[in-house]
């Protein structure tokens, strides 16, 4: 396929850019995400996750089942910061953000 084909449409990342990340040592979806912004746009990798996994599998000559998924985080839907902060009287918003701070990050 033409290397200029877009894979992540939100961030306009093409096959060539993803393969470049792989050449630079990327192993997982999250590696590619950090190097290229793939999957960091408004859909949060809902569309490109599996096409990118296929590219990773091809490049590293792996079975698709050996290529993991991205780390998925709160909020699950695009939401205004103001909306996230309102009316949270029976708890606090910090706990929503606590997830990424406390559990850190695991590579899959």
């Amino acid at each position: 396929m033409d290397k200029s084909t877009i894979v992540c449409r939100c961030e306009e990342i093409n096959i060539d850019e993803i393969e470049n990340a792989l050449k630079n040592g990327a192993q997982t979806f999250d590696d590619i995400k950090r190097l290229t912004r793939t999957g960091m746009g408004s859909c949060q990798s809902k569309v490109c996750l599996h096409p990118v996994r296929e590219i990773i599998a091809d490049y590293h000559n792996k079975d698709l089942q050996d290529v993991g998924i991205s780390r998925m985080r709160i909020p699950l839907k695009p939401i205004r910061m103001g909306t996230l902060a309102t009316e949270s009287k029976d708890s606090n918003v910090a706990s929503v953000f606590g997830e990424s701070v406390e559990e850190g990050d695991e590579n899959r």
Partner: peptide, 9 residues
């Protein structure tokens, strides 16, 4: 209404 996430509790 959409689920946006879970709390630590």
């Amino acid at each position: 209404h959409a689920m946006v996430g879970s709390y630590l509790n």
